[in-house]
Write a protein that binds this DNA or RNA. Sequence first.
DNA 1: TATTGTTGTAACAATTACTGTTACAACGAA
DNA 2: TTCGTTGTAACAGTAATTGTTACAACAATA
Lengths: 177, 177
Amino acid sequence: MKISSRFSIAVHIVLILAVRGSSQKMTSDFLASCIFVNPVVIRRILGQLKKAEIADVKSGEGGAFLLKDVSDLTLFDIYQAVEVVEDVSLFNSHKGAEMKCPVDCHSCPKLSGGNDVGGTENENCPSTSSEACCYIHSSIEDHLLSAQKAMEESLKRTTVHQMIEDMMAAIPKELNN
Amino acid sequence: MKISSRFSIAVHIVLILAVRGSSQKMTSDFLASCIFVNPVVIRRILGQLKKAEIADVKSGEGGAFLLKDVSDLTLFDIYQAVEVVEDVSLFNSHKGAEMKCPVDCHSCPKLSGGNDVGGTENENCPSTSSEACCYIHSSIEDHLLSAQKAMEESLKRTTVHQMIEDMMAAIPKELNN
DNA sequence: TATTGTTGTAACAATTACTGTTACAACGAA
DNA sequence: TTCGTTGTAACAGTAATTGTTACAACAATA
């Protein structure tokens, strides 16, 4: 699966506010026509950016603007604002993971010394010996979380200021006048 | 949004095959009861692992097994096998991104020197001067792709062998007999 | 050969999340 | 008061996933 386009749209919004915010009123209609999405979608996302205190909107009058210095604003801030991931986990666990998975032998009587930690018993539990078939689930969680963190660290390293610099650098010289 | 639980289930399958594959026949029913999902879901994912030449299934007789050494098998291999991300992009772009976004001034006549690169013209284009409002979209793509790559590199660094080692290490000593 | 257990796959329902759209009350400026 | 704008509710449409049933194909084996 993919991650919501909210994030990509939110980054667009922030960059447009940063680069062009002073030149005209940033209404949701204007932003919508820039980004080619519905104005209501823009307002929904602006609402999330407001809640995160990244941007604000002039009530009644209209027009959005940034609250933060672009040097202090990272992609991670925006990512959190639009709730790209629910709770903590980018990688969805299957529903059964919360149950007593027999190979997650935290809850396997054979290996936990009989300490039942809750969940549903499974008569097919493969742990017929003390053979270590266990801790699979927590191991998976750990390593997937590491991968998620690696991505988030990359987002934290990227400021909006840097993105603007990169954009400027990408503009062909003959247009820089 | 979140990523398909296919990945998490696939990793479970691989770990169970690695740890317990020799002790009994790994049928889809058995794996399903271990992981608490429907057997058909297991078969679907095993089909993807087969296509990726990570595992195979004994036709007719039944029973899955790994084709690769766990030291040579990384989470990234599994991630690719189950097609966690379509094409290349973890982060969904909004549909409009493929159009002539006026702030993606690759296509803005004002900045591209009149070289039209295709797409739909937008009369609301904010680029009324040569002011650099541009290259937003490609800058976003670049930085989001970097974040995705960071995650994938983390997955590449994690072998199934390592996960098993970590699992073993996590087992309380009193159970290691 | 007939039986048995298993797989691969199709088909369909149910779920979930997201997106587009319309509508409208509230709000501030002029 | 009028106007443009926002915030939000409501609903339809879309897309992907998951659970489930069903069944033909297949290998082992009795």
